[in-house]
Design a protein around this nucleic acid. Sequence first.
DNA 1: TTGTATGCGTTATCAT
DNA 2: ATGATAACGCATACAA
Lengths: 340, 340
Amino acid sequence: MARHPSAPVTLTEVARRAGVSVATASKALNARPDVAPETRARVLAVAEELSFQPNALARGLLSGSTRTVGLLTDELAGRFAIPVLLGVENALGDGQLSVLLCDARGDAIRRRHYIRTLLARQVDGLIILGDRNDVRTSLTAGIPVPVVYAYGESDDPRDLSVVADDVGGARLAAEHLLALGRRRVAHITGEEGYRAARDRAAGLLRVLDEAGLALAAGRPLYGAWSQRWGRQAARMLLAAHPGVDAVFCGSDQIASGVIDALHDLGRRVPDDIAVVGYDNWEIFATESRPPLTTVDLDLERLGGTAARQLIAALEGERGSGVVRHPGRLVVRESTGPVPG
Amino acid sequence: MARHPSAPVTLTEVARRAGVSVATASKALNARPDVAPETRARVLAVAEELSFQPNALARGLLSGSTRTVGLLTDELAGRFAIPVLLGVENALGDGQLSVLLCDARGDAIRRRHYIRTLLARQVDGLIILGDRNDVRTSLTAGIPVPVVYAYGESDDPRDLSVVADDVGGARLAAEHLLALGRRRVAHITGEEGYRAARDRAAGLLRVLDEAGLALAAGRPLYGAWSQRWGRQAARMLLAAHPGVDAVFCGSDQIASGVIDALHDLGRRVPDDIAVVGYDNWEIFATESRPPLTTVDLDLERLGGTAARQLIAALEGERGSGVVRHPGRLVVRESTGPVPG
DNA sequence: TTGTATGCGTTATCAT
DNA sequence: ATGATAACGCATACAA
């Protein structure tokens, strides 16, 4: 038991109790070769007894590295930031790095402020987490440590961005529908202002093109990212194009609305019409009836990739360009019977 | 423009360029009185030009305070941690404190490890974020800085815990139903192993008791926190007790299932049966038809309270005991017409 | 093998 | 009003 539980345990204290100098104590604790075995043992014993933890501040001041990474989010409250954050945290934690979290809440001034703060705290690197899949202005100028952009893409090609591959994800969905024999595929999606909406539409169109097919209804039905729009669009779609045999939706939420409307219209899913969502948003995807085939953005893994890219950069392997992170198709019953 | 953009800007450098000593430069930058106005101006100008930021490590090493708080979560992936985290981050950010985030992912070993890490990094305080509303083993022993427990309650009364007041929240819901004239109120909720389920049931029962009423079906229907259970329980309930005129649900997800089942059974909501949920989980609460009257846990505000309690503790106002954070009733159409 | 001394960047004390 | 110096806790180069 320590006499003064509140007195911070320093290396000096350990050295004093072990009857050696701080230098020797330091060497012993850091497994340097030039220290006698019994001396090392004594120091380690004392350190253990006092639960000595080297002061990371002093260490960082000396080494120039804090083993800390700043994570700057635009909007933590949004639905996409959290899984990425999770993946980042896990990957960095495994690498013995800590995360300093800052949420700029969509405010550019706050963002500048946090960047300054993080740099003042001597973070070894920075991960800038976007709130949308869109391209954003680079913040890298004047930042003396490696930066990785996650989810949102930097407009500076010298930066490294890790983003979701929505074109590829939509391809997966489209190919799945075609493989099931569907030929009259419609697309109901969210706001065209979102790159996510445009990219997903592009992926679908490309696959249809390659198969010599046209999009049912002729064009993607852009609207809102809501169930309500899904319902509304589905009703409109079916009224004008009753022969549609598949609907690829820009999100699970939209897909959920589409399924509701199809149900009301007496169309069976998937028998009459197959439905595919996007995001694999658990609630909508698994609780809808039938459960949704959908594309999982794999955001947690994306976050992990961003973190590992940053770690690589810290080790000197600085990259640049855009790493598109593939999603994966999750097949459930809204596109056909699932074996097993 | 700096000549060597990558060379870190130190106070020494600022002092050199301003033609003063580091001591004077420090005083000038820290607005100490004993420095000549023109000297101060010169120093500030140079600092501004070089975008000088004092090294937080050096400052912390000297002052013993890092203006950093450790946020240790059990399970960041869960649904409740995020809003609390958000509230904490906002409140601490306003107080110029930074957040070091660690996710123990439900692992006790990882938790100990992170606590050691955070202490090594000289955090000024710690917020321990539970993944459930239940009582948990105190971790405070051996932690030399203030600790606040959020969402989950510490079993040590000397600790300070900030938790959601589920008994009170359920009271709000129950009183609302009684005020609307409902008299045969049933309770469909989640697993009895959760304190949240037990507390919400207790709050309801107390209000019914006070009104001289009995719970429809005699006892709370404990089950799973799922829509499926909501549907199933509603069917069972209505079969056995067709006269029920209100269902208070332990969660919005359950309530959503209940409403589905009631719809299928031809009961109108709220005309025949009023339904109240819990959590104000946006998706379920607003997208269900009709939208759900529910209890908002106000977790973001809870997080803010926890953060402010910690700030108070850092300033010497150490508290203890349990702060129950009231939720608030959100009235929507599932219990009756909403004016406006 | 061990100890002494230096420095990391900043602030505070005490001369000047 | 200004500057030299010590100190925070640690790691390292170098001396012993």
